[in-house]
Design a protein around this nucleic acid. Structure first.
Lengths: 219, 219
DNA sequence: TAGGATACCTACCAATCAGTATGATACAGC
DNA sequence: GCTGTATCATACTGATTGGTAGGTATCCTA
């Protein structure tokens, strides 16, 4: 591990470079969130101190607290930044005039990209036992929304004939699990983009393990 | 969550009940490992203190250290206890006289049961950034062994015609990811046994999302 | 029955770290 | 130039916790 340089894209901190103060609270706040996400990616939530995050931004700890109320909220913000694209993808898919399978594929594509994004790790790992009951519940409800959306698409697919009949709950768990897990290996193996991975997974999910009549895959 | 009683099966601690000392180091050591696994399941690695584990066994902290050298090793032992059944399943499968798909199914069955076991969480979550480089490497090699075994079965399946042609690497990632993720939701939803879940997942993996000629699933 | 090994405990240390008290500095408007 | 507000730093606290020092009771063996 090349210490700090591996994941530390020299993403210009709003504090860096110029000595005069930039008066853009929103920009700075987002920079703090992003720095937190990168630190969490590299070292995990518990092994990341707020001093680490501050140091990455070349600022002191109270400055971080000036933009964020506490560490927990930092994780929460990273989670939201990660899951929002999936929620939006789910809404978009609902509007599509296509088979349920096509709509599901669109959702899975968004999902895969999101997990491979800079906030993927935080999104996937949040909730656990590291958060207050209130935040944990909030996160759980957002996750549940995605889960229910996928289950619904699976049921609709079984009805319109575009998806092989299946247990929606277990199938949704399998799909989400496979995609969530991307966050665990993507850091070490970035040989593919998030979009590539999503596409590859969708192919796997669609075909299944059993050979099909057609024989060949339409890659 | 019913606090301590939910996961805390009143598993008799070797220390509990009798005041005269039981002289079986191995039994006690395993009790320590198991107590650690249960604590990690409930609160996560970082939120579990060695005092917690000691308290669960009704012992003092130094007693825990008498059986285990440090916290890291505790996690490592839990990991090994979790992954060993999968390794053994992989070896057994290699000896089977069956199609590659059948052998793969056998492995996935072991895999699913293992992840749903009491050590599943520790197995799945270990490695991360919580361990020394040496242990991390050790764990990584054990995980890689499983991964390579699955990829190999996928390749063999493509050759003997029992498995639909696929990208072994991505397919193995998808399968393992889906199964690993069981550890995340199984704690809260124990409505099924590990064997049931494994069977359900295998059905999903085999059929895939696209409808099949046969139409119905042979549940 | 002395001496050693085993098994366990009380009390403590040292380090880490989330979060804060306090105050300095710069800038905007007047 | 003056004042209020926004932004940031130094230096600290309080609590947790991994790990240990040192001692005690019990058992086995010679």
């Amino acid at each position: 591990m090349a210490d700090a340089s591996a994941d530390a894209v020299p993403r210009a901190s709003p504090w860096r470079a110029s000595r005069e103060r930039v008066h853009d609270r929103q920009v700075k706040r987002e920079a703090v969130i992003r720095a937190a996400a990168h630190a969490f990616n590299r070292k995990g939530y518990h092994n990341t101190s707020l001093d680490d995050i501050a140091a990455a931004l070349e600022v002191s700890k109270p400055t971080v607290y000036y933009y964020v109320s506490n560490k927990e909220q930092l994780l929460f913000e990273c989670f939201v930044a990660g899951i929002e694209p999936i929620r939006s993808g789910l809404r978009q898919a609902r509007a599509l005039k296509a088979s349920a399978r096509e709509r599901l594929k669109a959702v899975l594509d968004h999902y895969g990209r999101a997990v491979a994004s800079e906030f993927g790790w935080s999104m996937v790992r949040a909730e656990d036992q590291d958060l207050s009951p209130a935040m944990s519940a909030h996160i759980k409800s957002l996750k549940s929304e995605i889960d229910q959306g996928i289950r619904r698409l699976l049921r609709e697919g079984a009805q319109d004939g575009s998806i092989h009949p299946c247990d929606p709950k277990m199938t949704a768990f399998a799909l989400a699990g496979a995609l969530n897990w991307i966050a665990h290996w993507y850091r070490e193996d970035q040989s593919m983009t998030g979009a590539d991975i999503a596409a590859a997974f969708i192919t796997v999910f669609e075909n299944g393990l059993m050979p099909r009549a057609g024989g060949r895959v339409e890659r």
